[in-house]
Structure formats: structure tokens, C-alpha cells
């Protein structure tokens, strides 16, 4: 689905934190990327999602070089539109797929039921707990038609029980390719494949 070839990258004139890195992400797989803080995990994710451009190397997909698949994000810090309702936050994910607002609301309702928040669609998202808010973000990712879900420490701020609930939902999304960056071994254990980022290179 996605092929990363010889990329190197660093920030603001500093040394490269990713060095001649190669990676292939296969369709439908759940890939975990582990590594210490500052090793460049989030940077790698940003490059995979097209939010950052590598200094050297290329990212290609079946759409060709530079063409990345449609992407949905689940981040460590809960990224929600805090002034909006739960259903609005999910519906905007569906809008990215090119549908209209009314249709997006319908999709959002379906995904909120899937993540167990069907009865809270009208609630302001700012009053939700951290775990609930993260479920909203996952529902948003699922509501989008994105082929690839990129998750950066999706359970980093959650307790153990909530982590399990969130992972059940996220990793249970059938037909989606998921790349998860995590410190948590238990999270990685639930993925199909785990790679470690060491000295700017990915190793099994």
C-alpha cells in the first residue's frame, strides 16, 4: 500500500533523525512502530501521512510517487473541535470523504454507535472524559473513507481499562490499514507486525 524508500529527515537544520529509512506498509495490516522518545516516530508518521516532506528519499503508493493514500489521524493529545458536539466532531471526518453534511451526520451516527457513544451525540465534546474523547476521534477516523489510519500514541493518556476499550475499537476496524506509534508493548502486541526505530532506522 505504501512504500518508503531511503528517506532522511530532521528538524530546523539539525541532524537527521531518520536516516536512509526504508519501509513497506501492506494493505490491511496493523503495524506498530516502537522506539524511545525523540527517536523520530511521530516524524515518520507525519511523513507517511503527507504532513511533512522528507529531506531525501521518497514515499510512494499504488497511486505513484508522492501520492499517499487518504489518511485519518488518531493522535496522543485528543484532537477535537472543543466547541462542537460529539456528532459534529465525527461528521467532519466523513466530510473529508466528499459527502454532504446530512449524509455525514448519518455516517457519524453509525460510527458513534460502533464506539459506544450513540447516546451522547448531542453532548459538547469538551465535557467528555479523556477515554470518551479518544473514542470520538477514533469514530471520526472510522467515519472517514480513509484507507490508512495513522495513530500516534492513541492510548498515551488513558488508563489500562480504557486503553483496552479504545484498542478494541481501533484495531478491530476491519479493512483499514493501521500504523500505530507507541511506547506500550501491550499495544504493539495486538498488532500484526512491530518495527523498532533505532538510530534513525527501522528494525524488526
Amino acid at each position: 500500500m505504501l512504500r518508503v524508500k531511503g528517506i532522511s529527515h530532521g528538524y530546523q537544520g539539525g541532524p537527521d533523525i531518520l536516516v536512509d529509512l526504508n519501509l513497506e506498509v501492506f494493505e490491511g495490516e496493523r503495524l506498530a512502530v516502537m522506539g524511545p522518545s525523540g527517536s523520530g516516530k511521530s516524524t515518520l508518521l507525519a511523513i507517511l501521512g503527507g504532513l511533512a516532506r522528507p529531506r531525501r528519499g521518497s514515499v510512494s503508493s499504488r497511486r505513484g510517487e508522492g501520492g499517499i493514500p487518504s489518511v485519518a489521524w488518531v493522535l496522543q493529545t485528543v484532537n477535537v473541535l472543543s466547541d462542537r458536539s460529539v456528532i459534529d466532531n465525527v461528521a467532519v471526518g466523513a466530510l473529508g470523504g466528499g459527502c454532504r453534511w446530512r449524509e455525514a451526520l448519518s455516517v457519524a451516527r453509525r460510527e458513534l454507535h460502533r464506539v459506544g457513544l450513540g447516546d451522547r451525540e448531542s453532548v459538547a465534546v469538551r465535557v467528555l472524559s479523556g477515554g470518551e474523547a479518544q473514542r470520538v476521534v477514533i469514530a471520526r477516523a472510522l467515519a472517514s473513507s480513509a484507507e490508512l489510519i495513522l495513530a500516534d500514541e492513541p492510548t498515551g493518556q488513558l488508563d489500562a481499562r480504557t486503553t483496552d476499550e479504545v484498542l478494541d475499537i481501533l484495531l478491530g476496524a476491519h479493512g483499514r490499514t493501521i500504523v500505530v506509534v507507541t511506547h506500550d508493548v501491550s499495544v504493539a502486541a495486538r498488532c500484526d507486525r512491530t518495527l523498532h526505530l533505532v538510530d534513525g532506522q527501522l528494525v524488526p
Binding site: S70, D83, R84, D88, V92, L95, G96, G97, G98, C99, R100, W101, A104, S145
Partner: peptide, 21 residues
């Protein structure tokens, strides 16, 4: 697929409507 222009604009309107402070 990408955002419809009308929905991108509509999201701007909703942003003001719900923008509170």
C-alpha cells in the same frame, strides 16, 4: 475523494456559529 467546496465553506459557517467566545 476530497472535501466538497460547499461543505468546506459550510464548515466555516458552522465554525462561527459554534465558535462561542
Amino acid at each position: 475523494m476530497r472535501w466538497l467546496r460547499s461543505e468546506a465553506a459550510g464548515e466555516g459557517l458552522r465554525s462561527v456559529w459554534y465558535g462561542r467566545g
